[in-house]
Amino acid sequence: MTAKALAAATGIDYREHLRLPMMPHILCPGCGHGIVLKALLRAIRSLDLDWDRLAFVAGIGCSSRLVGYIDGCTLHTTHGRALTFATGLKLARPDLTVVVITGDGDGLAIGGNHLIHAARRDVDLACLLLNNETYGMTGGQVAPTTVPGSVSTTTPRGATEPPFDACALVTAAGASFVARGATSLPLELDTLIAAAIAHRGFSFVEIESDCPEYFGRYNRLGRAPEMLQQQRRRFDEVDETLAAKRFVGAPPHAGVPRLRTGVLHERKT
């Protein structure tokens, strides 16, 4: 945790930026998305941005629901189309800082085409994709990010298809800033989101978030605390050390893929 991130985390009154009559939010107990919203508010605070020149655009889904709680300029749009609305907004009002909040289903499946083209055009947007490996709002169906073997309502015997690596996808498509963060590393998340917002060009942050209600329950991963813990194990420093010492062979992991967090790709534009 950087000193700056910790400073932003201390003394922030989140309530100043929430639509209080809407609270408590509708997300399930322990849903990771709330942790992301907090990190986003802290990141904005650390950048000292003008709230009147800041717009949040979202599609449909549990993650996209977050914009409903931000007391600022928000646009809740149609399923998968957050990036197209955001592109239009940015063209009409280039002076605005536009942050897009989307999920893995919204951004990679229904809106997958818009994602790659926004990345290709390198539109100056910050896109946060909250990946919980499932469609939470519609009841836990398989998503393009579901790891093979995982149970969902539509894959009761386990998913069989290979998932997208969202970061690799947008990097290949042309995004100029690509990072991965996680709700279990909440202060690093602040730093990544702040860097993404500050970056000029299409900046993309995939955020590992948890859906204890469906994904966790169906896959017997426990509730939120256990899931957060599990997340950490996927990018434990211990693992990096082992890999560096070549104790670990090259073949890709059969089950849950290893994740690298931090800034994965950056091209100054």
């Binding site: 985390a9 201390t10 009154d13 989140y14 309530r15 929430l18 609270m23 408590p24 939010h25 997300l27 322990g30 849903c31 990771g32 998305h33 709330g34 942790i35 919203l37 907090k38 709700t183 279990s184 909440p186 202060l187 939120a224 957060l228 813990q229 950490r232 434990d236």
Partner: peptide, 29 residues
Amino acid sequence: CEILCPDFAITVRRAAVPAGPSLVAAETT
């Protein structure tokens, strides 16, 4: 607790720090 609460339900207030070394926060692993 404040950073990880997804529901904005906890606010931590820092009181005057007593003399002597303070305990440092642990990670959540």
